[in-house]
Simulated assay, not measured.
Amino acid sequence: MSELSQCIGPDGHEKFRRLVEAAQEYPAATTAIAHPCDEVSLESAVQAAKLGLIVPILVGPQARIREVAARATLDITPYEIVDAVHSHDSAAKAVALVRAGRAETLMKGSLHTDEVMGAVVARETGLRTGRRISHSFIMDVPNHPHPLIITDAAVMIAPTLEEKVDIVQNAIDLAHGMGVSDVRVAILSAMETVNPKVPSTVEAAALCKMADRGQITGAVLDGPLALDNAISPEAAAVKKIVSPVAGRANVLVVPDLEAGNMLAKSLSFLAGADAAGIVMGARVPIILTSRADALLTRLASCAVALLVVASRRADAAAAMV
């Protein structure tokens, strides 16, 4: 049995398996892991390293990290450890490694999301760019032909139209980094017609026009679309919606965090979907997983981050020619 099959099992999870295998074609991404001080986060780092997805730099209280490794019988001798006093210090030092050019990605360990993201968005010492930061779930849904990107279900609570432009562009860039050449973005609402009484439909129409005018690039957009006619060709046909996106969307942009969170969790708990998580819009992709996530989810998140890094490496190399 291969190392990958030993980690995620021999059956199922085919979309995530293909993501990991695609990522393994590239050199591993040096990854600053903020506060890997429990067995789940440390095991994830070690397994991702064994699969060739990351080269971990473990940032946290050195004694605690070594204690966890000993308890879980994990060999961390090949990996650098940057000592930190506590979780906030771990986040700050992990971000500092990225700013210094020593790490190509950042990964959340066993600390709270707001601790690591607080370090990321700090104005003077963080990883801000000219674009807003947003989160995407990459969903492996059984019986669906391709992975679905759902955004934003974790960072932007009630995004404005201006913020949704960055959310959409971040998701498009993520899809391209994953190797998706035909990115089809559905701007979701409760209906597929523009209704001034439903603001999400008006914003969907505006986003599509912005794409027409080159303010959003790299994908074809359509919206408003209801979820059924965004992902089901049969539903789109019944509603007589003719577009390159309807029924074939691979990126779903939700109206707000609550809608996105419920959609992602419904797919996970009712349809048995797996969900990886990546934050885009910062200087580097950020692997933002829950402490309750399975090993498969963490490995898939690392794979997606490596694919994005590999795409950026290629762009940087091309720019130097």
Rank of each mutant, 00 (worst) to 15 (best):
M1W: 06
I8A: 08
E14F: 07
F16C: 06
L19Q: 14
V20Y: 03
V20G: 08
T30V: 15
T30W: 10
T31I: 09
A32M: 01
A34G: 13
H35C: 12
D38V: 09
L42V: 10
S44L: 09
V46I: 12
L51V: 04
G52T: 05
I54Q: 11
P56N: 12
I57C: 10
L58Y: 14
A63M: 02
R64Q: 14
E67V: 09
A69T: 13
A69F: 13
A70H: 04
D75F: 04
I76D: 06
P78L: 11
E80Y: 04
V82S: 05
S87V: 05
S90R: 11
K93W: 01
K93M: 02
A94K: 10
V95E: 13
A96P: 04
R99I: 07
A100W: 04
R102D: 00
L106Y: 06
L106H: 02
M117C: 10
G118M: 02
V120N: 04
A122R: 15
R123E: 03
T125V: 05
R128Y: 06
G130N: 15
G130I: 13
G130D: 15
P145K: 12
H146F: 15
D152S: 02
M156G: 08
I157T: 09
V165A: 04
D166Y: 14
I167W: 12
A171H: 10
L174F: 13
G179Y: 01
V183C: 03
A186E: 00
I187W: 03
S189H: 12
S189C: 13
P199C: 09
E203I: 08
A204W: 01
A206V: 02
K209S: 12
K209G: 04
A211G: 07
Q215E: 15
I216H: 10
G218R: 02
V220F: 11
G223N: 12
L225F: 15
I231P: 06
S232E: 08
P233C: 05
V242Y: 14
A249L: 06
V251E: 01
V251F: 07
V254M: 06
A259Q: 09
A264F: 01
S266Y: 08
L267M: 12
F269R: 05
G272Q: 02
A273S: 14
A275N: 08
V279R: 04
G281R: 09
R283Q: 09
P285M: 08
P285I: 03
I287F: 14
L288T: 11
R291N: 06
L295W: 01
L296H: 00
R298E: 12
L299P: 01
C302S: 15
L307A: 03
A310I: 04
A310V: 07
S311H: 15
A316Q: 15
A317W: 06
A319H: 04
